[in-house]
Simulated assay, not measured.
Amino acid sequence: MQYPTYDDVLQARERLRDVSASHWYHEDLGSWQWWFLLLVSIVPWIVWRRYRDRNRSYEILSYGFLWASLATSFDVIGGELLLWGYPDKLLPMVPPMFPADLTVIPVLYMWMYKWASTARKYFIGTLALAFLFSFIIEPVFIFFHMFFLQHWKHIYSFFGFIILSYVVLWIHRKAGGQVSGSFHE
């Protein structure tokens, strides 16, 4: 049995790049989905900037950027493992989940983090956002053919968001990200 060489992998990647770029140009660019992705990539940051807590901007932004990093990493892994996929892209050369992972998820979690002055509020906010993303946003995106599940279920996303929320909080605290003190009960 002959195993694929790196040249075989490179040829497959080149073919995928070409097919993906053609799909983006002919199917995504200018479609309502593309405009929607563009808006959700920009508007949440504008709203966040306008209504942010200026005294805690660095703390909250560092929390959000940690969320963005981990959400992007897990989304890329899930996509590569064909657990889920995104048919539409904002740009042909970046991962298709860019608007969600670098905008919607971190901005909403930053609002929750800003609001969550106690451990109880953080837990409630975490459950609410996990529910929102897993059982409302994901099904809506599936309905509009902007997201599909292949070997994944919404309940996995729900628990994944909860676990990731506490991983992000733990890393953020270990890195000294919470400058305004710990939760108060």
Rank of each mutant, 00 (worst) to 15 (best):
L132E: 03
Q150H: 13
Y113T: 05
L132H: 01
L149Y: 02
G78D: 00
G79F: 05
F98T: 08
D75G: 08
F74K: 06
M93R: 13
A119H: 12
V94R: 10
H154Q: 13
V167I: 14
V140Y: 06
F133G: 00
Y58R: 11
F131P: 05
W67V: 08
S69H: 09
D101E: 07
I163T: 15
L164D: 03
L83N: 02
M97L: 08
A71M: 11
I124L: 13
A119N: 12
I105T: 07
A71P: 03
G79I: 07
P95T: 10
P96E: 00
Y58T: 10
H154N: 14
T72R: 04
W115P: 04
W170V: 12
M110C: 06
V104R: 02
A71T: 06
V94I: 15
K153P: 05
F159H: 09
S73A: 11
F133C: 02
K153S: 15
F143V: 13
L83E: 07
H172Q: 11
H172Y: 08
S73T: 15
T103Q: 07
D75M: 05
D53T: 09
Y86I: 02
S157L: 06
G64H: 00
L82Q: 15
L149D: 02
S165H: 07
T126I: 04
P92M: 06
I124W: 02
S69K: 08
D53I: 01
N55C: 09
T118G: 05
G125I: 01
F143S: 15
Y109E: 15
F135A: 05
Y109W: 11
V107A: 04
I137E: 00
I124V: 15
W111I: 00
F141N: 09
I171V: 13
G125H: 02
N55I: 07
L61K: 10
M97T: 04
R120K: 12
E80Q: 11
I136E: 02
S165G: 12
K174T: 12
A130W: 04
I60V: 11
F135S: 03
R120F: 12
F65Q: 05
F158Y: 14
T118A: 06
M146Q: 08
K153Q: 13
S57D: 10
I60G: 01
S57Q: 09
I171W: 08
K89E: 03
L83G: 03
G160A: 06
L83S: 04
I137R: 00
A100F: 01
L82E: 14
